[in-house]
Amino acid sequence: MKSFWALLSRDVRLAVREGGAIGTALGFFLVVVSLMPLGLGPDLNLLSRIAAGVLWIALLLAALLSLNRIFEADHEDGTLDVLATGPLPLELVTAAKSLAHWITTGIPLAIMAPVLGILLNLDLAAYPILVATTLAGTPAVSFLGAIGAALTMKTRRGGLLLALIVLPLYVPTLIFGISAVSAGAGPTGLAASFLILAAISLVAIVLGPLAAAAALKVQLQ
């Protein structure tokens, strides 16, 4: 367990010290959200109605762009081979790396989402719900994304392939993330969608490291 925390803090520190990756994801998030009103027109009523959907889709795309760095750098410099032969089971290695991705990408994006909500005239009452749902939903993004990152680690046109593989898996997170924020659901609908969103994240936390570790084992032999 100690080596799990060591790996986690190493990955988080590396990401924070480099800084570039987090900045890029946040910048991309900002640009995509800003393009939406330019494409759809500045009608504030329309924007506030679709704000939740726009924020979630932009968040998924921003997170998607950062997925390939979960394993890529460590695969290139051979760290992954060392980790695979180390004492920590590979499932925990992938779990630590996915968790580090969530801390360095999911949480910043979730904190950024309400700020961008201002640009889209999102209803003020929806802000706490938006932060809560993005925090509850983004673990699924990181842990399911780790599967795609592990599967495409050795492919050359990895980026597009990763999107094709991972985006369909994000459908449940997207649907329940948006339905929790949308006002139409009502308080009971809100609680239900929030709980289901959290359940999806839990499934992803179990499934992601297992599948990603299996994929790494195939490629590190």
Partner: peptide, 24 residues
């Protein structure tokens, strides 16, 4: 093997996708 892993992940997520699309 990698395609097989993806297929098994897909078949695990598929019921959740079906459920969420019905809900939506």
């Amino acid at each position: 093997k990698l395609t097989a892993i993806l297929a098994l992940v897909g078949v695990t997520i598929l019921p959740i996708i079906k459920f969420s699309v019905d809900w939506w």
